[in-house]
Design a protein around this nucleic acid. Structure first.
Length: 280
DNA sequence: CGTCTATCCTGTGGGC
DNA sequence: TGCCCACAGGATAGAC
């Protein structure tokens, strides 16, 4: 599932490739992709626009356009962004395609949004104020930013009985964590996923902030995790799935102590942990 | 407000 | 061998 490291892997490839290119034509094949906008209106707003920059906030991609508008895209479960050239056939589950041209007007391939399960979304925001109000109402701080730390996390969790894993999965706590990196971060922090968020000690909050950052950095270094769908912008798989410490490792030995990794259901998600390293 | 559940969607894999 | 059904989960709407 694409989480911050997978989105960041794509962003690092797409930003230099897309910067300065013009969207000659946008084609929305699946109306759900842009809902509630209408495909024709969406396409018209992008045609002829130049991409100034391609950035990320949480798991959202932000394509900044030359008229002050921003194209926002989210991969959700199985979405993917692929760069292809003119004679490469479009992938099987194409939802939208953006044909690109360089500043001299020469064709420069296309950017394809592929998404078997059709959960992925896109929207256009006319200006920075509109964009910021959308993102800020949904997302907490970036995990590598100064405003995410142990103090913030403890304040955020104070008085809450919800499992700490549910709090990590909530994008308003910290932006970009999903099911894989929540499990990996909690293991690194030696905290059981079901622990009541409000009962975290100061030391645990500090370990968790480090665990989140370490897990995300390891994922970025490995160019993301490919469990089934994720591919980078050129179709290559990530390798972080080969370094999972507990996630998807039910019945296998804990890499630290050898105890058998357990699987439970927590926050409505398949959850993996080491019963010994992550005490109740 | 906080918390939990259902919903969207389809490819995959386990069980019979 | 083939069929059916449960399962996977990011974000959000709605229930309580």
């Amino acid at each position: 599932m694409p989480e911050l490291p997978e989105v960041e892997t794509l962003r690092r490839q797409l930003a230099p490739a897309l910067r300065g290119l013009r969207i000659e034509e946008a084609e929305v094949g699946d109306p759900r992709f842009v809902a509630p906008a209408r495909p024709a209106e969406f396409e018209a707003r992008l045609a002829g626009r130049t991409i100034l920059d391609f950035t990320r906030r949480g798991k959202y991609f932000l394509a900044q356009l030359d008229n002050g508008a921003t194209l926002v895209m989210h991969l959700r479960m199985t979405g993917n962004l692929l760069l292809i050239d003119e004679d490469t056939p479009a992938p099987a589950h194409k939802r939208a395609e953006f044909w690109l041209a360089d500043p001299r007007g020469r064709a420069a391939g296309s950017l394809v949004f592929n998404d078997p399960r059709r959960f992925g979304t896109a929207a256009i925001f006319a200006d920075a104020a509109e964009l910021d109000s959308y993102l800020d109402s949904r997302l907490g701080p970036e995990p590598f930013g100064d405003d995410f730390g142990a103090r913030y996390l403890r304040d955020h969790c104070r008085g809450r009985k919800t499992p700490i894993k549910a709090v990590l999965l909530d994008q308003r706590t910290v932006a970009g964590i999903g099911n894989i990196y929540a499990d990996e971060a909690l293991f690194r922090a030696e905290i059981r996923p079901q622990r009541s968020a409000g009962r975290l000690t100061r030391a645990e909050a500090e370990r968790l902030v480090e665990g989140v950052r370490d897990a995300l950095n390891a994922g970025i270094d490995a160019k993301g995790a490919t469990i089934d769908d994720f591919r980078d912008a050129y179709g290559a798989k990530g390798s972080f799935q080969d370094q999972f410490l507990v996630h998807r490792r039910e019945g296998l030995p804990c890499p630290v102590c050898g105890t058998t990794v357990k699987k439970i259901r927590c926050a409505g998600r398949g959850t993996y942990f080491c019963p010994k390293c992550q005490p109740a």
